Amino acid sequence: MRTPARVALVAALLSLTACGGQAQVNSGAPAVGGSPAVQAASPVQQTVDFGAQYHFADGVTVLVSAPKSFRPSTSAYPRSARAVAFEIAIHNDGDQPYRLSALSVSATAAGTAAKQVVDSTQGYSGIVDAGKDVPPGRDVQVTLAFAVPEPPSAMRLSLRPNATSSVVAVYCGSA
C-alpha cells in the first residue's frame, strides 16, 4: 500500500473511532506488483465538536451550534416525542456562488439514522432557500431538526458542501 493511501486510511479510521463509529474499508483491484490498492469509497471524515467551524477546501465554511432539544408539535412530521435542532451557519469564502441545494446533511443518534423533523409551528422548515446561491463573501443560516431518542445519546451530524467534496465534516457530541 502506498504511503498517501495509508495516511488517508489511518485518518479515516481515527476520525471514525473518535465518534465511536466503526470504520469500513473497501479494497479495490490489485495494484501493479500484486499488492492490494485501497480506494476510498467515501470521502474522508473530519471530526468536529458542536459549536466549532470547519473550512472545506472549496471555500465553504460551516459552523454548527450545539444541539437544542425540544418537543415537536402535534403537526410535526415525522411524529417524534423528542427532537434536537441545529443552527448551521454557512459562509462562502470561495470565488464562485455556492448553491445551497448542494448541501448534504445527515444525522445519527445512538448509532441509528435520525430522520429530519419538519415542524413549521416551531420554525423548523428545513432548507427553505435551497434554490438560492450564496454569493462569494456572504453567509446564510439554516436551522435543521432531527428526531432523537428520549434519553440523551451520542449524536453525529455529517455535512458535505457538495457531492464532489472529498471531505465530510462530522460534528459529534451528546444530544
Rank of each mutant, 00 (worst) to 15 (best):
K115R: 14
S75V: 11
A11G: 08
K68G: 08
D133S: 14
Y98F: 13
S125A: 14
V167R: 02
F56P: 04
S73I: 03
A81T: 11
V105R: 07
N26M: 09
H91Q: 14
A29F: 09
A52Q: 15
R71N: 12
P161I: 01
Q116Y: 00
V128C: 07
K132N: 11
S153C: 10
A76W: 02
A52L: 12
P152A: 13
T143F: 02
Q39T: 10
L13D: 08
P97H: 00
T108H: 04
P97Q: 01
A163E: 10
S27D: 10
S153L: 00
A18D: 11
A29E: 11
L16G: 13
D58C: 12
F56N: 07
S166W: 04
V25F: 06
D95T: 11
L157E: 08
P149R: 00
P151L: 09
S27M: 14
I127Q: 02
T17A: 10
K132C: 04
G28C: 09
G59R: 02
R79Q: 13
A85T: 01
Q116A: 14
G111K: 04
A12Q: 14
P97E: 06
R156G: 00
P72W: 00
A114L: 06
Q46H: 12
T164F: 12
S125R: 14
K68F: 10
F56Y: 10
S65A: 13
P136S: 02
Q122W: 03
S15D: 11
S65D: 07
A5G: 07
N26C: 10
D49E: 14
T47C: 11
V142M: 04
A40W: 01
R71W: 01
G33K: 01
F50D: 03
V140D: 12
A57N: 09
V10H: 06
A113T: 08
I88D: 03
A66C: 00
K68P: 00
K115C: 11
S125H: 03
T74Q: 13
P97N: 06
E150C: 01
G111A: 08
P78A: 09
H55F: 08
R82V: 08
L144Y: 01
Q24P: 00
A29S: 13
F50M: 06
D95F: 06
A130I: 06
L144D: 03
R160M: 13
P152C: 10
F70V: 05
P30H: 09
G20A: 00
A66Y: 06
P43Q: 03
T112G: 11
V32K: 09
R2C: 08
L16P: 05
G20F: 01
V10R: 13
A41V: 03
G20E: 00
V167W: 00
S101K: 09
V32W: 03
I127R: 01
R156L: 10
Y124C: 09
Q141P: 02
F70N: 07
A29T: 07
R79L: 15
A41S: 15
A76D: 05
Q53V: 02
V134H: 02
S73Y: 07
F70H: 03
R156Y: 05
D139A: 14
Y124M: 11
N162E: 09
V64H: 05
L16H: 12
K68C: 09
R6M: 15
S153T: 10
D133M: 06
D139F: 09
A66T: 12
